[in-house]
Design a protein around this nucleic acid. Structure first.
Lengths: 186, 186
DNA sequence: TTGACGAGTAAACAAGCGTCTACTAATTTC
DNA sequence: GAAATTAGTAGACGCTTGTTTACTCGTCAA
């Protein structure tokens, strides 16, 4: 009712979830501390574990909530390489990205969340992508494409926006489209 | 002279370096602790910093010492995609890998060593590979190929040896060769 | 107005980290 | 053989981590 009430469990919970989403996407699981999340959310640190149980559980909920591969996997298979190329080209010189992909590029070294990551990558990326692909070895072909996206994220993280020697946007998309076609080809 | 002497600075130094190499390659920078390195090397923990200065410096020395991309970049350009494909196929279902590549897949989220990693990837992989490639955007094309290798390492790390739905070795190499050709093509 | 409920808070917890100091003891030098 | 050198050791340092406990106090029903 009143939008000015000061003690709102749901609102606080969502502020924490949003803050965790932003920080995990940008920095990865390990680099983000509970205190950073609390500060970003403007909430007390004890509330995080009260509402989510643990850091690990919070991470799982972030992935579960926002984990759709945003639109890229929807549409015709013929244009899928082009959409993947656009996605990679964009994330090579911008800040934002899908939380699942960001997490995959940046949190894969934390054994604590391997299970969560694995399940999420499988159900949100690999399986849907493979389902689109005709022909044999669909899962493997989807895996190769996913590896390319992941590696691009890793290098983006390492070299910063712009990465190395990126040509113009169109040329870059053209090149990447050809590569994704090779990945996904029957 | 005598191979049984108990106090040998150089031998201990090398044991520590080897142990660090093994652990960093397998687990990544963050997951490896000084105490783990000391235990693996059979040396006292204080000797690590005495001989190498700090964990960061030790990591840098590991990368500097073993950082050659092992043979893959040597040979004809025409067969480079095939050699890269063999390399990726092998590391998809085995344990061993180049320390630079392993570190790249597993340590990229540690801002502490971004500078070290960046320099090493540039000088050991990207620049030598780009130097082999004729035509425009050589650095970018080498970057795409590197992204694929890196991403494969990340997924290997996440899913374990065998990864997902890998077909037979030959079919896998054939597919990957086609993809690398698309990456590197003029 | 009172009492219960619960959102929010402050502070501490144990554990682990990289690092460093003070020391022991083996080796070498004279 | 004594003294200097130095490889190796034990243990603590300060700090940060995720987590938890004990508490305050705003809110709402009776």
């Amino acid at each position: 009712m009143d939008e000015t009430r000061h003690r709102d469990r749901e609102a606080t919970r969502r502020r924490i979830l949003d803050a965790a989403h932003r920080l995990f996407s940008k920095l990865g699981y390990e680099q983000v501390t509970m205190r950073m999340i609390a500060a970003e959310a403007g909430a007390n640190i004890a509330l995080i574990n009260r509402y989510f149980g643990s850091k690990r559980d919070l991470f799982a909920e972030v992935l579960a909530g926002r984990g759709r591969f945003p639109g890229v996997l929807e549409g015709s298979v013929e244009e899928l390489p082009g959409r993947l190329a656009e996605y990679v080209a964009e994330r090579l010189h911008s800040e934002r990205g899908s939380p699942v992909m960001e997490a995959l590029s940046q949190s894969s070294s934390s054994p604590e969340i391997h299970g969560i990551m694995r399940d999420r990558v499988t159900s949100a990326i690999l399986e849907p992508m493979a389902a689109l692909l005709p022909g044999p070895d669909a899962i493997f072909r989807a895996t190769v494409a996913t590896a390319l996206i992941t590696g691009a994220g890793t290098l983006r993280q390492l070299y910063g926006p712009g990465v190395l020697g990126t040509p113009g946007h169109e040329a870059m998309v053209a090149r990447l489209t050809a590569v994704f076609e090779a990945c996904l080809r029957t």
